[in-house]
Simulated assay, not measured.
Amino acid sequence: MCAQVVLAEDDEKQAELVRRYLERENHSVTVVHDGRSALEEVRRQQPELLVLDVMLPGVDGLDVCRILRQESDIPVLMLTARTEEDDMLLGLDLGADDYMTKPFSPRELAARVRTLLRRTSARAVEPDTMLRVGGVSVDTDRHELFADGTLITCTPGEFRLIATMAARPHRVFTRAQLLEQLHGIDQYITTRTIDTHVLNLRKKIEPDPRKPVRLLTVYGVGYKLTDG
């Protein structure tokens, strides 16, 4: 597996050794020697992996990891001479995916890199279970509803209703079609149940529930979810 790797290590001899081992694995390696350059290269290249020394001049590795975790899910393998457990846990808490203490075997580092890249590749091929319609997002695996990035609490019936419409945005669903989706969820369901769910959902996902622009009524037919 070949990958673009940014290596941030202030010890030039150590950096050269690691670079050689990674290039033997057919990775393309960019070496930088301070934290600010690490941030710049990751932002510019969007590499598959960052190998990050903790003790960097300017911006240290922990701060680099903290900043990048707000912007990216790039895998981070941290390197450090610190052996205290608290330091290791801090790096992992900040979002590092793996942690190696110096001195280490370059062969082990190369193996850790392979493992991280395989893990990342496996995540990349996982199906996206998030349905997005404008500012509304529905995660069907986690059973979560979001409106403009905010997690919304909803009942099982409301969730089934919004998930059904999010899977086919702009399609008009009749009340009868929506009723079919609620069998087994709501014990006693009527067309009034559908109308009540729609009203409650509008209160939760609409900027102004009195003037809906997302969950719309198509008079004489039913409802549809749009990206308004």
Rank of each mutant, 00 (worst) to 15 (best):
D10E: 07
D11T: 10
E12I: 12
K13V: 13
Q14W: 10
E16C: 14
E16W: 13
L17H: 08
V18Y: 03
V18L: 15
R19P: 00
R20I: 11
R20K: 15
R20E: 15
Y21W: 12
Y21L: 11
Y21Q: 15
L22Q: 02
L22W: 01
E23F: 06
E23D: 07
E25H: 11
N26A: 11
S28H: 10
T30C: 08
T30E: 11
V31E: 05
V32W: 01
H33Y: 10
H33P: 04
R36D: 13
S37R: 15
A38S: 04
L39V: 03
L39Q: 01
E40G: 09
V42D: 00
V42C: 07
V42E: 00
Q46K: 14
P47A: 09
E48W: 02
E48V: 00
L49P: 01
L49N: 03
V51Q: 02
V54F: 05
M55H: 09
M55Q: 14
L56A: 05
P57G: 11
P57H: 07
V59G: 11
D60H: 05
G61L: 02
D63N: 13
D63K: 15
V64I: 03
C65P: 10
R66I: 05
I67Y: 03
I67R: 11
L68E: 00
L68T: 04
L68W: 03
L68R: 00
R69E: 01
Q70M: 09
D73N: 13
I74W: 00
V76D: 02
L77P: 03
L77H: 03
M78R: 03
L79V: 03
T80W: 01
T80A: 03
T80I: 06
A81V: 10
R82W: 08
E84T: 10
E84W: 07
D86T: 08
D87N: 06
M88R: 13
L90H: 13
L90D: 05
L90A: 12
G91L: 01
G91F: 00
L94E: 04
G95E: 06
G95A: 12
A96E: 00
A96H: 00
A96T: 05
D97V: 04
D98M: 04
D98A: 08
M100Y: 02
T101Y: 01
K102I: 00
P103H: 11
P103L: 15
F104A: 08
P106Y: 03
E108I: 14
A110L: 05
A110D: 04
A111R: 12
R112L: 07
R112T: 06
V113A: 09
T115V: 12
L116N: 03
L117A: 10
L117M: 07
T120Y: 12
A122F: 13
A122G: 09
R123N: 13
A124C: 14
A124D: 14
V125H: 09
V125I: 14
E126N: 09
P127A: 14
D128H: 08
D128Q: 15
R132E: 12
R132Q: 15
R132P: 01
G134E: 10
G135L: 09
V136M: 08
V136W: 02
V136I: 15
S137G: 13
S137K: 14
D139H: 09
D139P: 09
D139E: 08
T140Q: 13
